[in-house]
Design a protein around this nucleic acid. Sequence first.
DNA 1: ATCAAAACTTGATCTACATCAATGCGCAGC
DNA 2: GCTGCGCATTGATGTAGATCAAGTTTTGAT
Lengths: 218, 218
Amino acid sequence: MPHTLETGLEALRIVMNALVTFTDAEWADIASRWQYRYLPKGEHQIVPGQTEEYIYFIISGATRIYHITPKGEDVTLAFSYDNTFTGDYGSFLTRRKATFYNQAVSDCHMLRCNYKDITELHDRYQKMERWTRLGLEDLLVGMLVRQVEMLSAPAEERFARLLKQSPHCFQLYTQKHIASYLGIQPETLSRLKRRMASETQDARNVILSGAEGHKTQD
Amino acid sequence: MPHTLETGLEALRIVMNALVTFTDAEWADIASRWQYRYLPKGEHQIVPGQTEEYIYFIISGATRIYHITPKGEDVTLAFSYDNTFTGDYGSFLTRRKATFYNQAVSDCHMLRCNYKDITELHDRYQKMERWTRLGLEDLLVGMLVRQVEMLSAPAEERFARLLKQSPHCFQLYTQKHIASYLGIQPETLSRLKRRMASETQDARNVILSGAEGHKTQD
DNA sequence: ATCAAAACTTGATCTACATCAATGCGCAGC
DNA sequence: GCTGCGCATTGATGTAGATCAAGTTTTGAT
């Protein structure tokens, strides 16, 4: 079994070290507070009404954070996959009830750490506080970029940018979910795909490999 | 003159204390690093290409953070006013060149603190690190709410919500800027206003008082 | 392998909002 | 006080994307 607590912690340490370097002693304490967690495809990590108790680190797998509006519309807010964090941050941070769903779209091997432990780590290590601050800063900058895009760029451009920056998403997620992330209908995304495939090579590569898997010819 | 460094620091302390309580000694150190700054109406606090050196706290006045897209479109990202912070956080935090403008839309009395001082405070006081973390958390939660709205709610609903939650914005900012914040054209906002004024009392109060100042009747 | 349920595609319309254009209003500078 | 010039309003028209409605293909469970 390739995804154990130990291999997960190794991956986690590498990711966390990108922002702050922890000593072995510090790391031992931090690592001891994470536990392995398996979430099979289709299951929800959290649904609205619950309070988010954990922050998750995905060792392998993919989840989708989404929201159902009062009118029943499904809105995708974020994608999470290997070596990224997930969970309803808003609920976790504020201790209020979650407003988002977080669903595994493929079998997920994850690590998780609960609120109490995260809080203790924040109290005990200034570096941990800093790690969270730096992480939030990155998240914030990313959200600002996305906000500008949503306000100014037309659908085709938003699609093109996702295609360029996160082509793997087209393998991991369905068109429906990608469409709702882009703020358009699946039909519109389908038409965009065709139009762009006939125009740019880039689009063809990503779109076709996603749709046909390892098929080589017809 | 009502807006001095001292009165500003008092206001700042109250706002910062909402998240973390600082001792008098800590506060003395923190306060010593802020300086008074006046920015007259129309002037820019920062423009793209510069690196943001300061975080600003607005004692009184209002600014607008916006972005000009490659196609020349003006997109409003955020409004800042009395007792809120402003600046290009992205640039300040990452030390990369700013991509946003921040312009005073009325005479602004502010405090500011430079990057070096903020960094020293972060190094010196875990509480300061925590204050920033908690502030970023609040910001993040607010942005998530806005993101959901932009993706799912139609223009009329976004307008209604801004009207309800930040009615003062309709006094501080022009229709053009509010429209670009909502992701619509000024003409559309104008039509929305009229339609809603004929339907709800709420809309009438806010919109009319904004448009007509202290005029009482016609 | 078989079958049902999803997902994707494609076409025909519809609509919210953009765009273009003209007019009126309000405020800053002379 | 005039005088512009930017802002708001209003109308006419255009369009990107939504919606509705079949089809087809893919997936997954038995």
